[in-house]
Write a protein that binds this DNA or RNA. Structure first.
Lengths: 344, 344
DNA sequence: CTGTTAGCGCCTTCAT
DNA sequence: ATGAAGGCGCTAACAG
């Protein structure tokens, strides 16, 4: 049953049927009602989306391209919030969401279906440049949390935020500071970072900007960045964080940091849980700061001291720009300090 | 730049270009290489997904229709796991994921773009029957966690699992049992359930089956179901759970349950957090059981005693059936008991 | 206000 | 192994 069939059955032209569905002002109210009710009665489900897409060149689909795997992104609170903001705007404007990932286990290519999206929101630096190049060059594209040449970006003030929370933490002078980074090293590595490890640039990883903020605050307090031990974590999940955190907490008490600056809430929460299990008191024996401000860190005792970033709003902004509701431009969102009990 | 343009430029037929991309066996290796490399050089991005879709009738897109809002689903651990399993299979077979929700704030209609999916996975009972009827009737569809007439279903053994965990909890006789349900009442309600509230059927809500399992175990122990206080929660989020849990924990100690059977881990975790904040000791003063087995409940101390369901596997099964890799049929997944410290 | 018509870009027989 | 041609279902321009 196609539009044409229906038109023939009803004895009207295909244009009238099409207009009945798409352009109410182009035909009389009665004819429109007649067509719509007959369509329903005869089981015509409305114009085929595929044909309509070909004809109009628009799909009302926006693709979100995630730098991480879908598995990770769907289970990560920050990515989920971003998607929440995106879908909120898309829904409100009759668009739907196609999820793509740039870090597929198997393939090195975008699925062909990606080319049917009307626009793209790219979240995080893609592991593979050439996947980016497969995206249609002339359609709207917004980058989130990193930079793409000539494209609008939505991001947050990582360096100042990190400086601010570190400064707060240093109000109470620590004996030993440690920093746990998220994917800072150029080559994958879980554990202590030594002089032999190269670092990614601030362009490539948000952790680098956050680290720069930490260092600036530490040096404001007369500490030397080279004296601060760093650990690196490749994926922001409990399973990957736990062994590295254990390595830190298992240090002898006179070497173990009593202030641990974590580049994400997930890292900080893992540290909190493992510290509790070992009888290390937070904040008395170990003070902890996070980054992100996810719910899980606030709906518990002690609450995490962290930087709150509004990922939902990031998603909304990106979606509004990609839909052309806001003029494309670089946007910088502010963050706020959340003082919990892990580092009062 | 279209396929036809490219063919003309190269002086070959459109069929050859098409075959170069889709049917390597239909032309010589050299010609194919020539066409592909020239295409890349000239910036032809490959056959247009929209036109291909119209022509072939297939989009390589599978839609997941979520009964809850996208915002909720993306932030809920169980839904996220389901999506993880779905995407794992879709990725492996070159399909992509379109996310739809049956509980949109605004509209009562499926977006038209939904009709381009090759198949549908419907997760949870839709709030509105008529949205279901908008889905193309003749395409593959798999229901998850509830039943649709004539369609294959993937679900878990809610009643026996709930019976088993309740039986475990009753090994240590409680003074007062309480049960916290998830969307059991026919009309929305957050708080204590009284005789005036109608219940949804076991067909409509998984909480009902779980409750039946609880009751069976309680009656095995000589308890009367009418003596057990029930509370209801409409949405499985901390924000919605917290006030109801507070109401329970604020009861005078001689009325407050010392065993709380929660129909989800989120509910149990909220109870755990709020109990800790009030100095109510778990499990000494209050024993807690959950349902789902989400990570957050296991990566903490005390760990949740709960029923582990493998939502990732549910997603995989649904995806394999909708892609036609497995023959469509009803599948029942087993669960397992996870004994943590909240109810040893 | 209604009807006719020309493609949107591609795939796939069929003939060569 | 290659080329020509029809049509997938629809919309928008135009003619009436």
């Amino acid at each position: 049953m196609t539009l044409k069939d229906l038109a023939r059955e009803l004895g009207v032209s295909t244009a009238s049927v099409s207009n009945a569905f798409n352009r109410p002002d182009q035909l009389s109210r009665e004819l429109r009602q007649h067509i719509l009710s007959e369509a329903r009665r005869m089981g015509y489900p409305g114009p085929d989306a595929r044909a309509r897409m070909l004809r109009t060149g628009r799909s009302r689909i926006i693709a979100v391209v995630l730098a991480e795997t879908l598995t990770y992104s769907l289970n990560d609170a920050v990515s989920s919030e971003l998607l929440t903001g995106v879908t909120e705007v898309l829904d409100a404007h009759g668009h739907t969401l196609l999820l793509l990932s740039g870090r597929q286990p198997g393939s090195r290519q975008m699925p062909a279906s990606s080319s049917m999206a009307d626009g793209f929101i790219v979240y995080g630096l893609m592991p593979d440049d050439h996947m980016m190049s497969e995206l249609p060059a002339h359609r709207p594209l917004v980058a989130v949390d990193f930079h793409i040449n000539g494209r609008p970006t939505v991001h947050i003030d990582n360096e100042p935020a990190s400086w601010a929370i570190t400064r707060h933490a240093l109000r109470h002078p620590p004996k030993r500071v440690g920093i746990v980074c998220l994917r800072l090293s150029a080559t994958p590595h879980n554990g202590r970072l030594t002089a032999g490890h190269d670092w990614l640039s601030a362009q490539s990883t948000i952790t680098r900007s956050r680290l720069d903020g930490c260092f600036r605050a530490l040096e404001d307090h007369g500490l030397n960045r080279d004296d601060i031990p760093l650990w690196n974590i490749e994926e922001n999940t409990h399973a990957v964080c736990a062994p590295v955190i254990e390595e830190i907490l298992n240090l002898p008490p006179d070497q173990r940091p009593d202030l641990l600056l974590c580049m994400s809430d997930r890292i900080a929460l893992t540290a909190l849980t493992l510290a509790e299990q070992r009888g290390i008191r937070v904040p008395e024996d170990l003070r902890l700061t996070g980054f992100d401000g996810i719910e899980e860190g606030q709906y518990r005792a002690p609450r995490l001291t962290t930087v709150r970033q509004d990922s939902i709003e990031k998603g909304r902004m990106a979606a509004r720009m990609v839909l052309g509701l806001d003029t494309p431009s670089d946007r910088l969102l502010n963050t706020s300090l959340l003082i919990g009990e892990t580092c009062p």
